[in-house]
Write a protein that binds this DNA or RNA. Structure first.
Length: 437
RNA sequence: CGGAGCGUGGCGCAGCCUGGUAGCGCACUAGACUGGGGGUCUAGGGGUCGUGGGUUCAAAUCCCGCCGCUCCGACCA
């Protein structure tokens, strides 16, 4: 993409409303624009990041055996009356009335819908287990939206729901998602630690929040430092095998969010205790028959008796992750995108567009990179070198390829790794080889 | 939902206290000079001062209502 033609509204000054670093950079780098409190438009650069994150989330869900579907944003109130949540949910739920005066709502979550789907289509235990997910916009009418996309009212979320005939099956589903989440966040370049979370109405230990450390995190968290060093399951992980040892390994060390912290246990860890602020990027939990019972989602079991389906739900805040990644990866000059989510892999800087030879080389390099399938943002604008460097640093592309008349004379180009700031003068071929990695 | 604050060209702000010609920086347009870390000069365009009412000869400025947005707290992926 040629920057001269790209829609990238960069802000030199920080908008007054942005308090935390990810929000500031998302506005300044032209990723999003606020439409209303807690509601954002995604501009081209931000949209690319959002889609990259979504693709990784999707890939890992599929790998774990979950199947994608898509449920609507607008739901009938009727289902929520069945589960009893229509009255319980309160003002966070945006209620709507259609032209026929029917009560509708903008979904804050999808348990009711998915339970309705399962009860009409899954009749026998032989059809289980199943894991279904969707990636969809949700709306929660937060009293006080803040921190940009980190706590918006409208947000993109991946929700998986598992269906099993008994607890042992539900546990296997839970473990699959546990492992999938470890892998997903690692691929996004994040170190996310599973922590014991509020277990909800069912109790037990099958509820974990996945937390990313960040100075601006919204809640205080505590964990054993060993958790920061455990290797994430690799591509070869077998989801059909026994995942319990992996889960045990990750859940053995102490790790909990602030509200469940036990100071005694913390003290016992001594130097090994890590206390930090964290951002919740995922939450998995088992809820048994909480919805299947009232909504009569049952299957015929092996013994011919009806049993309520055992369910769990597993969320990842996709849009929130854009903010979380920035919180975890930035410096004073701007964003530092991990390779896996970067909107473009390379920023190509033409230092002197009115130098015919220089532009010739840059155009050629632009073509070669694209031919290799490498996403490149080509700064072909007639602007000062300094301004171009500052823009590239702000938008945080992993590689900068800098080409100017001076280097061309010496047979060299400069590549800069955004994350380290390291710069190398190389021949063009060597630079391209390095970028292609 | 409790407490606090802010709405003035696209963005960041001053002006308001003490009523009297709407201003600055950035961005934008044109030209010239410049050219390896957010350049300089010249000349321009763009604002019914959130909105409705009130006071007054006169309201961005004083008073009241409403709307929007932000911050602290409680709450939440």
């Amino acid at each position: 993409m040629r920057l001269s033609q790209y829609f990238l509204p960069i802000l030199k000054e920080t908008p007054a409303e942005a308090q935390i670093v990810s929000h500031r950079y998302m506005l300044r780098a032209g990723l999003v624009r606020q439409a209303s409190a807690g509601i954002y438009s995604w501009l081209p650069l931000g949209f690319r990041v959002l889609k990259n994150i979504e693709a990784i989330v999707r890939d890992e869900q599929n790998r774990a055996g979950a199947q994608e579907l898509l449920m609507p944003t607008i739901q009938p109130a009727e289902l929520w009356r069945e589960s009893g949540r229509y009255d319980d949910y309160g003002k966070e739920m945006l209620r709507i009335t259609d032209r026929h005066d029917r009560d509708m709502l903008f979904g804050p979550t999808n348990e009711e819908l998915i339970t309705d789907i399962s009860r009409t289509s899954i009749r026998s235990y032989r059809q289980l287990p199943k894991m279904l997910y969707h990636i969809q916009w949700k709306f929660r009418d937060e009293v006080r939206p803040r921190f940009g996309v980190m706590r918006g009212r409208e947000f993109l979320m991946k929700d998986t729901y598992s269906f099993d005939v008994d607890f042992a099956g539900a546990k296997r589903s839970y473990n699959k998602m546990f492992v999938a989440y470890l892998r997903t966040f690692a691929r996004l370049g994040l170190k996310a630690i599973p922590m014991v979370a509020e277990s909800g109405p069912i109790g037990g230990d099958m509820s974990h929040e996945f937390i990313v450390f960040a100075k601006t995190g919204e809640s205080e968290v505590f964990c054993h430092r060993d958790l920061l060093e455990i290797a994430v399951p690799g591509d070869d992980v077998n989801y059909e095998g026994d995942l319990q040892p992996i889960v045990d390994r990750w859940t053995a060390p102490y790790a909990t969010t602030g509200d469940k912290h036990d100071p005694e246990k913390g003290k016992a860890l001594g130097d090994a205790l890590v206390s930090a602020r964290g951002i919740e990027v995922g939450h998995i939990f088992y809820f048994g028959s909480k919805y299947s019972k009232p909504m009569k989602a049952t299957v015929v079991g092996p013994d011919g008796e009806d049993v309520a389906i055992e369910m769990g739900s597993y969320g990842i805040g996709v849009s929130r992750l854009v903010g979380a990644v920035i919180e975890a990866s930035h410096d004073d000059a701007g964003i530092i995108w991990p390779d896996a989510v970067a909107p473009f892999a390379v920023g190509l800087i033409n230092l002197k567009v009115d130098d015919a030879a220089c532009t010739q080389v840059c155009d050629d390099v632009y073509g070669r990179l694209r031919a290799k399938g490498i996403a490149v943002l080509y700064d072909d604008r007639d602007d000062r070198a300094g301004a171009k460097f500052a823009t590239m640093d702000l938008i945080g592309l992993p590689w900068q390829l800098v080409i100017g008349p001076r280097g061309i004379k010496a047979g060299q180009v400069e590549i800069k790794r955004r994350a380290t700031g390291e710069r190398q003068d190389l021949t063009l071929d060597a630079a391209l080889a390095q970028i292609a990695g």
